[in-house]
């Protein structure tokens, strides 16, 4: 089962995740994003790409192969504190 956690301290209530998600997983309640429909999530991670404050976390999903990241950037990110 896919588990989605939204960090409420960090979320700024912009609604871009609810606007972008094709499966209507998110809804804005009380000015913060809430997960209402996690069973339909197809794990496309478009919400990760559009969130301005990196507030969303997915657990136990199938992570597709990502061999395209630039090798220099990879080695820089490994040494980032």
């Amino acid at each position: 089962m896919v588990k989605i956690i939204v960090d409420k301290d960090v979320c700024i209530g912009c609604g871009l995740c609810a606007h972008d998600c094709p499966m209507k997983v998110y809804e804005i309640r009380d000015g913060r994003s809430t997960v209402v429909n996690p069973d339909d999530c197809m794990q496309c991670l478009s919400c990760h790409e559009i969130c301005p404050s990196n507030a969303i976390e997915h657990q136990d999903i199938y992570l597709s192969r990502r061999l395209y990241v630039d090798l220099e950037v990879c080695s820089m990110l490994r040494r980032f504190v």
Binding site: V10, G13, C14, P52, S53, A55, V81
Partner: peptide, 25 residues
Amino acid sequence: PLIDGHVPELSKKSVCSECDRQMGQ
């Protein structure tokens, strides 16, 4: 901790995550 050789785990998020303003359409 870095001088001791131990790399600490800290938040790596963007500035928006620390800002207290509200965003909307």
